[in-house]
């Protein structure tokens, strides 16, 4: 783990150079893990019973808690966007937990967090058009059409602040843990860093993931209502 994002190898497609960085490879690992869990859940879904137990119990509890959370935030009418945000929540949470294994978390790269926040912006525009049509466009020209550039900048600043918040938190944790590993002798590098990992990865990571999801849901709600 270091401060720089390492470039593992480069490929050329039609004359353009693409860099396969550490972030991309770590994201692939997380995607592989989540896809395997999803496939196992899908296979076990056929054998699900009326009265849940064991694995089924855990899956149903997680899904139900998240659906209730989305319903209490955006209301009954818009709660059909819950599966998308469940995916975002799981991906960001496992990205934060990934650095427990001593690897660089993908969210400590601005590209990952900005991609997620940009999708939230697109979803916000789409939900606004879908649910309010012309009213949503009219809101950009309130209270007067001179204010259109300011309103537009205000909307476009949302994904930037959303992504910088998550990125800054994860990067600061990464820097502090890297400094600890670099500056201390080998003797104290076993066991004691687990406190740092517990605070900066588990607590801060889970809290910032929750905040990312709830702020995205609030942006979608204000656009669609």
């Amino acid at each position: 783990m270091g401060l720089e994002i390492d470039n593992l190898w480069r490929i050329e497609i039609f004359g353009h150079e693409f860099w396969i960085t550490e972030t991309i490879v770590n994201t692939w690992f997380i995607m592989l893990f989540l896809i395997i869990v999803a496939i196992i859940a899908r296979i076990k879904l056929r054998k699900f019973k009326e009265v849940p137990s064991g694995f089924q119990n855990a899956i149903e509890a997680v899904i139900e808690i998240f659906e209730n959370f989305v319903k209490s935030t955006v209301g009954e009418k818009l709660s059909y966007i819950a599966p998308w945000f469940f995916m975002v929540f799981m991906l960001l949470l496992w990205s934060a937990l990934f650095s427990i294994f001593g690897l660089r978390p993908p969210t400590a790269d601005w590209a990952t967090t900005f991609a997620m926040a940009f999708v939230s912006l697109v979803l916000m525009f789409y939900m606004g058009f879908k649910h309010r049509k012309g009213d949503y466009l009219k809101e950009f020209f309130e209270p007067h059409y001179i204010f259109f550039p300011m309103n537009l900048i205000g909307e476009l600043a949302k994904p930037v602040s959303l992504s910088f918040r998550l990125f800054g938190n994860m990067l600061s944790g990464t820097i502090i843990i890297t400094l600890y590993y670099a500056l201390t002798p080998m003797l104290v590098q076993v066991g004691i860093p687990s406190i740092l990992h517990a605070f900066f990865d588990v607590i801060i990571g889970a809290l910032q993931t929750y905040i990312f999801v709830i702020l995205s849901l609030m942006y979608v709600k204000t656009a669609a209502e």
Binding site: L3, S161, F164, R165, F167, G168, N169, L171, S172, I175, L207, Q208, Y210, I211, I214, L215, M218
Partner: peptide, 27 residues
């Protein structure tokens, strides 16, 4: 509690901006 966490995160933004500016200045 929910509103408090959202408010804490929103007011944390300026601190994070300062941190990012410091990191850009140094690295």
């Amino acid at each position: 509690r929910t509103t408090m966490f959202v408010g804490l995160a929103l007011s944390e933004t300026s601190g994070i901006y300062g941190l990012l500016i410091a990191i850009i200045m140094l690295f």
